[in-house]
Design a protein around this nucleic acid. Structure first.
Length: 393
RNA sequence: UCCUCAAUAGCUCAGUCGGUAGAGCAUUCGGCUGUUAACCGAAGUGUCGUAGGUUCGAGUCCUACUUGGGGAG
């Protein structure tokens, strides 16, 4: 059940009750595609980071280890020792990201495994069955995520099919939840709005799925090639047509600035690979903007990644040391960076909730966005002198 | 002392029949949005050991020298 606690403009502060605990929204969901947060982050680490929800993936878990294995092991929570709510993406995004290895038909999608090349079929029913086996808290509808550059005609055809798939998803989910051997009989289903960057398709689709009384509504097919302005415009257009008493989820987004802007447009749930993937690549998020720890100017920087940050990396290690670990290809370097970035994202959404509670979200948003610009204009305190090499001051 | 092999980018090495040099790594800088991504992309750098010679033209052929490896004594 979703409870709206407070509203400021379109921005919502809410609570979402699940069988695995209550989620405070807006919330960032931490991506663990193959039942692991890449970079060596364990479920014990989640407490330190301050996470609420974990996200995993139907397609990837189906391929390996197999949803039958997870079912026999008692469901994903038990399997990966996770006590927090878990949302599983349906495999719909792999229709987009693995587009070289699949064919889309009315009945579903024929994939060729990216691991060993074998053929497999996934339609709405298969996706629901796999997610029911996995026994996640929230299942996502099986959809097609078309490219942002797709033409109106194609997107219309695709969205209509995604709607028909949603009807099949709902029917199959209801059936699965009533079976005696189902692990999580309260598994919830979120529908996904599509329509690329076309207002008419987005609105028409939003209205159609809003009538279906689902547990939540996602906006999908964004951050797949369109500009930030186009993305924000779609949110402006779409969120008002989605049910007010249900959570909204902007799939796969985004940068810290994207999240602030999307909360301001009524989004409750987020997920993104940025903090984990970029962490592994040395790209760190801070309140002053992002920094690339691989840059030579941090070689002799004895400050933490972010001053005052209470994450496991910043409490103990310098930029200089973590940079060394990254350059040496050491696991610890990636792990510390991922921990920092996830800590940053989860605490950013915590700060957003606090600001909403206190009715000062607008002010918080503007101030935070302003802060992100600082590193863009910063004159580094570490400068390169051709004769003397890197030097402080 | 002699024989022999080598010497090319910061490092390890390619370089055809003589036509003024490339790769990998390293370095520097980018990119990454429901993860096929500890990934991908771009850039910079050379007295081709030194000095001569042959040639229209030499990293490449010849001579000497220098340095290093291996061998003989």
């Amino acid at each position: 059940m979703y409870k709206l606690l407070k509203k400021e403009g379109m921005a919502k502060r809410g609570e979402f009750e699940t069988v695995h605990g209550t989620i405070q929204t807006p919330v960032f969901m931490n991506v663990a595609t193959v039942a692991a947060i890449k970079g060596g982050v364990s479920t014990e680490d989640l407490e330190q980071i301050g996470t609420q929800v974990v996200l995993s993936n139907t397609y990837h878990l189906h391929l390996r280890p197999g949803d039958d294995v997870i079912y026999k092991m008692g469901g994903l929570h038990k399997f990966m020792n996770c006590k927090q709510p878990i949302l599983t993406d349906s495999g719909g995004f792999q229709v987009f990201s693995l587009s070289e290895n699949r064919k889309i038909r009315e009945e579903g999608v024929y994939f060729r495994s990216h691991i060993d090349g074998h053929k497999l079929f996934m339609g709405p029913e298969e996706s629901m069955r796999i997610q029911s086996h996995i026994a996640s808290t929230i299942a996502m509808a099986f959809d097609e995520c078309p490219s942002a550059r797709a033409e109106h005609e194609y997107v219309k055809m695709s969205v209509d099919r995604t709607t028909r798939w949603l009807v099949r998803c709902k029917k199959e989910m209801d059936r699965l939840n009533s079976l005696p051997d189902t692990i999580n009989k309260n598994q919830m289903l979120f529908g996904i709005n599509q329509g690329a960057i076309f207002d008419d398709l987005r609105i028409e689709h939003a209205k159609r799925i809003a009538d279906m009384d689902l547990d939540g509504y996602a906006v999908g097919g964004l951050a797949v090639g369109e500009s930030h302005e186009e993305m924000y415009h779609v949110l402006d257009v779409v969120t008002e047509h989605l049910p007010k008493n249900k959570p909204t989820y902007l799939m796969g987004v985004g940068t810290p600035a994207n999240i602030l802007e999307a909360v301001d447009r009524g989004i409750d749930f987020f997920d993104c690979v940025y903090p984990s993937r970029n962490g592994r690549h040395g790209h760190l998020y801070t309140k002053k903007g992002h920094l690339n720890l691989l840059n030579a100017k941090y070689e002799l920087d004895d400050r933490p990644i972010e001053e005052g940050c209470q994450c496991p990396a910043c409490r103990r290690y310098s930029r200089s040391y973590i940079r060394h670990l990254l350059k040496s290809g050491e696991m610890l370097g990636m792990r510390l960076c991922v921990l920092h970035n996830l800590y940053f994202y989860n605490h950013l959404t915590e700060d957003i909730r606090k600001a909403l509670d206190e009715g000062r979200f607008k002010e918080f948003k503007n101030k935070t966005l302003e802060g992100f610009k600082e590193y863009d204009t910063e004159d580094s305190q570490f400068k390169y002198d051709i004769a003397k090499g890197w030097k402080k001051g």
